Amino acid sequence: MAFQSKHSLLLMVGLIVGGSGWYFWPKQQADAAVKPAHTTVLVSTVSASVKPLPITLATQGHVVRAVEIVIRTRKTTQR
């Protein structure tokens, strides 16, 4: 009896592995066979035009001057 239960268990495992392999293997080959080698891609075109482009800069923060210039008056004497 021990021989028959081991034999039936081995048979069931073999059937499960073989059945799942049979189920998944043909799908991969069929998907590859159905896909065409080159597909056509639809492309739309527009005409180029020249327009003014507004240049704006929106930021957060504050402005700090890079260089400070001091202007002083000089008193000169006339001769």
Rank of each mutant, 00 (worst) to 15 (best):
64 V>G: 13
10 L>K: 02
58 A>D: 06
6 K>N: 04
67 V>S: 06
38 H>E: 12
65 R>G: 15
75 K>V: 14
79 R>W: 12
60 Q>N: 14
72 R>S: 13
63 V>M: 05
36 P>C: 01
54 P>R: 01
40 T>M: 09
46 V>Q: 11
6 K>P: 04
71 I>P: 01
9 L>M: 13
27 K>S: 06
51 K>D: 05
38 H>G: 13
45 T>M: 09
47 S>Y: 14
25 W>T: 03
22 W>C: 10
47 S>T: 14
44 S>I: 08
21 G>S: 02
69 I>N: 01
7 H>F: 15
35 K>T: 05
39 T>P: 05
33 A>M: 03
65 R>D: 14
24 F>K: 00
40 T>A: 13
76 T>D: 12
24 F>A: 05
46 V>G: 13
37 A>M: 10
43 V>Q: 07
19 G>S: 01
37 A>H: 05
60 Q>A: 15
62 H>N: 05
19 G>R: 00
71 I>K: 03
18 G>P: 00
31 D>I: 14
74 R>E: 15
55 I>E: 10
79 R>Q: 14
13 V>F: 02
79 R>C: 13
6 K>S: 11
41 V>T: 03
53 L>C: 07
38 H>Q: 15
53 L>P: 02
20 S>P: 07
28 Q>N: 07
21 G>T: 01
23 Y>Q: 00
4 Q>K: 06
34 V>M: 14
78 Q>W: 13
12 M>K: 01
62 H>D: 07
29 Q>A: 09
60 Q>K: 11
48 A>S: 09
39 T>S: 08
15 L>V: 04
8 S>A: 10
76 T>H: 11
30 A>K: 02
39 T>L: 10
61 G>V: 00
49 S>C: 02
74 R>P: 11
59 T>H: 09
29 Q>Y: 08
6 K>H: 09
47 S>K: 10
47 S>N: 14
38 H>C: 14
12 M>R: 04
43 V>H: 06
37 A>D: 07
18 G>Y: 00
64 V>E: 07
26 P>M: 08
4 Q>Y: 11
17 V>G: 03
15 L>K: 03
68 E>Y: 03
7 H>T: 09
60 Q>D: 14
7 H>W: 12
4 Q>F: 13
28 Q>D: 04
38 H>I: 15
11 L>M: 12
31 D>H: 12
2 A>K: 09
24 F>V: 06
72 R>H: 12
7 H>D: 07
59 T>V: 15
45 T>W: 08
34 V>L: 13
23 Y>L: 02
56 T>E: 12
57 L>D: 09
49 S>W: 04
31 D>G: 04
51 K>Q: 04
66 A>M: 06
15 L>A: 04
67 V>I: 10
75 K>Q: 08
77 T>N: 06
75 K>T: 10
47 S>C: 15
10 L>D: 03
14 G>H: 00
76 T>Q: 08
3 F>W: 04
63 V>G: 05
69 I>P: 01
16 I>G: 10
28 Q>H: 08
38 H>F: 15
43 V>L: 12
11 L>Y: 09
19 G>E: 02
62 H>T: 11
78 Q>A: 15
19 G>Y: 01
32 A>N: 05
62 H>Y: 08
13 V>D: 01
45 T>L: 11
70 V>H: 11
